[in-house]
Design a protein around this nucleic acid. Structure first.
Lengths: 337, 337
DNA sequence: CTGTTAGCGCGTTCAC
DNA sequence: GTGAACGCGCTAACAG
C-alpha cells in the first residue's frame, strides 16, 4: 500500500496525492476530495520514513530525560508531547538513567533518526556530545546548563528564588536548624540547588555547617538513607529541605520509622511539586517547578530555532519556582512548649 | 554525511559499508576495520529512515499505554525498553489518556512509522482498530483483553488469585465489611478487578451489597472522592480494597483528612505495587503486578511472532500477582477492644 | 492546478 | 569477498 495505488484509484498523479496529504493550497477541492476518498478506501497511511527521507525533515523532536521513573519526568514528557502534537510534530523520548554510557546511546539514537531538535532535560552532558548536534546544525535546548552558543537555548530555573522562599518560610516558623538533602552531586541541577541552599542560609543569617548537608540520589531510597544519617547527628535538625520531592518522600518515611512526626518534630519541604506530593501523609510542602511552562519554553525554543532561516544565537528563558505550603511544615519544636 | 562518503574514505563500495554496519560475515576483517575507522572519523550515523525504507523493517515496536502519569506505566515502559534494546529494537511509546480519539491517533502513528509490532497495554481498543493492524500482518499483544486471533497474543493477569489473597488477608484480620474502589468502568481491566472482588466476597461468604463499591478513576483524585463517599455510609467499612495503588493513595488521604487512621480505623490494600507504595505513610499493603514480567512476556510475544516465518496463532501468557503485606492493614476495629 | 521526474540514504540482489 | 545497480515511498522542482 503506497501513494502510487492511491494515485491510481483517484486517477491523479502521486504528486497530487502528496500535495493533498500535506494540505497544499494548490489542489482543487474536488480532486482533493477524490484523493481523500481513495486514501480512506484503501486505508492508506503515508510512510513516515519515506517522508522524512524525501523531505529532509523528520518532524521529530528528541526529549532526553534522566529517569522516567521519577514522576517529575512523565509530567514533563506529557506536556512536551501535547505541545508538539499541536504543532504537528512528534517526540522521541529517551532516558539516560543518570548514566553516561546510556546518554551516549540516546544521542546516537537521536542522530540516527535525524531529529529536528533535542530538548536535554538532564543536566549532565559532555561537550563532545553537544558538538555532535551543533556541528550538524541541530537545535538544542538545555534545562539548567548555562551553555549558550548558536542554536543552543537554555532554560534557567531561578533556584535561589525558590529555595529562598522555602528557607524564609521555615525561618518564619522559628526554625534555625535546617538541613538539606542534596541530589547526586554529579548532576549540575543538584549542585545548583545545593548552592542556592547554602547561599540562602547565609542571606538568612544562619551559620552553614557541613553536617547540615547529606547527599541523596533524587530517589526515595536516597532520601531515606540521607535522612537516617541526618537523624543520627547530636543536634537533630528541626527542618529539612530536600532537593526534590522524591527525596522528601523518602525522608518522611525515615522520620516516621524512627517514631518521629512530621511536622511536629521535623518540618519537611520538597522541590518539584510532583502530583503525588499533594497526597502524601502529611501533604508535602514544596517548591513548585512548573513542568508545563518548562515544556512549552523548551519546545518553542527548538521550534523557533528550526523554523527560522537564520538560527538565532540561542535564547534564554527563566522559570520562577513558587512555594506551595501544605501540611509538612510547622513551627519549630522549641516554640511549641 | 552518508554511506557514500564513508565508502569513498574507506575506498570501498557502499555495499561493503552497509555490510560491515550490519555485521555481515562476508567482509574481510581488514576492510571492515578500514570501514569502521572511516565511520568513526566522519562521525557517521546511518539514517534510520533510509534503513527502514530499504529493508522493509523498522526495528521499531509500538507501546500503547493509557496514562504515563500513573507510575505503573513508566515502570512498564522502562522494562519494555530495556528488553527491546537488548534485542536491538527500539520502542515508540504513545499514551491514549484513556481517550478513544487519542487512541485513534496512536494507532495511526504506529501505522505510519511502520512498526514491527504493537503492545497494547490499555485494555480498551475497538475491533476496527485491531483490524488495521492484523490486516497488515502486524503482531499485537494485549494486556487483559482476551482477543485471540492469528498474530495476536494476550497476557492474562490472574486477578481472582490476586484479589482473593487480599480478601483472605483481610478476613483473616477479622474484617467483614470490605469495600472496593473500582477504576473507570469503561476499562476492561477495571471491570475484571471489580468482578474478581465480587466473586471473592462470595467465596469468602461475605454478602455483597452495591453500597460496598464506589467508582474511582485509577487516579489519586478519584480514589479520594470515592473514599469520601464510602465514609458517608451509615455502616462504615473497616477495610478498603482499591483497584490500583493510585486510588488507594487517594483513599488514604481522604481517610486521614477525616481524622481517621490507617490501619487502626480502616485497613487499605492497593493493587499494582508501584514503587511509591512502599513509601506512603503508612506503607501500603498491595497486590503486586510484576511489570518486568509483563514487559518481558509482551516483548517476546511480539518478537517471536514477527521473527517466525509462519506466525503462530497467538499465544497466551498468565501473570500471577502476589500479595505484599506492609503497614496499611491491621485487625478489624471490633477486635481491638 | 496537475503531471513528470529526479533524488533522499540505504539494503539488496546479482554479477564479478 | 566485493562492487554496480535497482528499488523502497515519498517530496520537490520543473514543466506544462
Amino acid at each position: 500500500m503506497n501513494i502510487k495505488e492511491v494515485a491510481r484509484l483517484a486517477r491523479v498523479s502521486t504528486a497530487t496525492v502528496s500535495r493533498t496529504i500535506n494540505g497544499s493550497e494548490k489542489v482543487t477541492p474536488e480532486t482533493a476530495e477524490r484523493v481523500r476518498r481513495a486514501i480512506e478506501e484503501l486505508r492508506f497511511f503515508p510512510n513516515t520514513n519515506a517522508r522524512a527521507l524525501g523531505s529532509g525533515r523528520s518532524s521529530l523532536y528528541g526529549l532526553i530525560i534522566s529517569d522516567i521513573t521519577n514522576p517529575f519526568f512523565p509530567e514533563l514528557v506529557k506536556s512536551f508531547e501535547d505541545i508538539a502534537v499541536q504543532y504537528g510534530q512528534e517526540v522521541l523520548v529517551a532516558n539516560t538513567d543518570y548514566d553516561a554510557a546510556r546518554m551516549e546511546i540516546c544521542v546516537s539514537r537521536m542522530l540516527q533518526r535525524k531529529v529536528d531538535g533535542v530538548a536535554i532535560m538532564t543536566s549532565e552532558m559532555d561537550e563532545r556530545l553537544v558538538d555532535e548536534f551543533s556541528s550538524r546544525g541541530i537545535p538544542l535546548v538545555f534545562l539548567d546548563t548555562g551553555i549558550l552558543q548558536k542554536g543552543i537555548s537554555n532554560i534557567v530555573v531561578d533556584y535561589p528564588a525558590g529555595i529562598d522562599a522555602a528557607v524564609a518560610h521555615l525561618t518564619g516558623l522559628g526554625h534555625t536548624s535546617i538541613s538539606f538533602i542534596t541530589g547526586p552531586m554529579r548532576l549540575a541541577s543538584a549542585r545548583s540547588r545545593r548552592r542556592a541552599f547554602i547561599e540562602s542560609l547565609e542571606r538568612n543569617g544562619i551559620p552553614m555547617e557541613d553536617s547540615l548537608i547529606e547527599e541523596g540520589d533524587h530517589r526515595m531510597e536516597g532520601g531515606h538513607h540521607a535522612m537516617k544519617r541526618l537523624l543520627e547527628h547530636k543536634h537533630r535538625p528541626t527542618a529539612i529541605l530536600a532537593s526534590n520531592d522524591m527525596s522528601a518522600i523518602g525522608a518522611m518515611g525515615a522520620i516516621s520509622e524512627l517514631g518521629l512526626s512530621v511536622p511536629v518534630d521535623i518540618s519537611v519541604i520538597g522541590f518539584d511539586n510532583i502530583a503525588i506530593s499533594a497526597y502524601t501523609q502529611p501533604a508535602l510542602s514544596t517548591v513548585s517547578l512548573p513542568r508545563k511552562e518548562i515544556a512549552r519554553q523548551a519546545f518553542r525554543a527548538l521550534y523557533d530555532t528550526y523554523q527560522s532561516p537564520a538560527p538565532p544565537a540561542g535564547s534564554e528563558y527563566t522559570i520562577a519556582p513558587t512555594l506551595i505550603i501544605r501540611k509538612s511544615t510547622g513551627p519549630a519544636p522549641a516554640l511549641r512548649r
